[in-house]
Design a protein around this nucleic acid. Sequence first.
DNA 1: AATTTATATTATAATCATTCTAAACTGTTG
DNA 2: CAACAGTTTAGAATGATTATAATATAAATT
Lengths: 142, 142
Amino acid sequence: MLKNSEFVSKLRNSGLRPTKQRLKICEVLFNRDKTFHFTINDLAKNIAENFNEKISLATIYNTVHAFKDKGYLKEITISSDKSYFDTNITKHHHFYDEDTNLLIDCNDNEIGKVNIKNNITGKKISSVEVLVRVASDTQNQD
Amino acid sequence: MLKNSEFVSKLRNSGLRPTKQRLKICEVLFNRDKTFHFTINDLAKNIAENFNEKISLATIYNTVHAFKDKGYLKEITISSDKSYFDTNITKHHHFYDEDTNLLIDCNDNEIGKVNIKNNITGKKISSVEVLVRVASDTQNQD
DNA sequence: AATTTATATTATAATCATTCTAAACTGTTG
DNA sequence: CAACAGTTTAGAATGATTATAATATAAATT
């Protein structure tokens, strides 16, 4: 739950001008108690339905990518045609429910630390992501 | 290193007619000592450059997807615009080298078993995938 | 081995998400 | 308030993937 003035500083601090559109998007994404997952399409729809002033699709794309580049969003890619953004930018893993197409955050109670015994020589690990796909017991397990 | 007749049975067994095009693609993909990663584009290029008879792009897409559906290929999605197919269909994880855009198979010497302590109620785990992104020490860690 | 049927391939067109363009607009600085 | 850089916008362009429907091929049937 952040205030408008906090979004203004947040944007300024990362070299992004606090425009009306960006602040609106910040409000939609970050003015909440809980983090969540969304697609560009979800976000565009959300804005179109809940606000009078519309934001151009190009701006929504630009802003989401700018926020991702600045580290305010993480992208979770499920398959070549399914990609979600996550407002939870802490290190964490995901369950993906193949029945509902929903992404669910894991915490340390659910997935233990991944033990990486050897890394590629001369390289540094930039991220470790675990995706656990789940489906109903009765469903085809693919 | 499989023979042509083995590909014929392999295809027949999964309800796919052993056409010239599918056998050619089998040869390119599976007639090797080591498994490997490729994109549709890589495969199309490979076929175009190394064989006289060309295979239509639509057929390449259809065949790769059919092989994936039948479990002869696995798809590894790196980001919304980068997706690889893997001829190694055993359970394993990957390193992704952000400098070279290459995918590297992990084995158990490199990543230990992922400890999933709790699963979503009523669901069955269909897969567990770990992706470790790596980059040069000197590079921006994103 | 000819006929029939179902399935596969092909070139091309269609689709659709994403990115580009360049004109208009806005936030910031002095 | 003027000047400038950065931003937004609608619409066009792009490009990967999928659809189409005519032709070809494999398999089943006679």
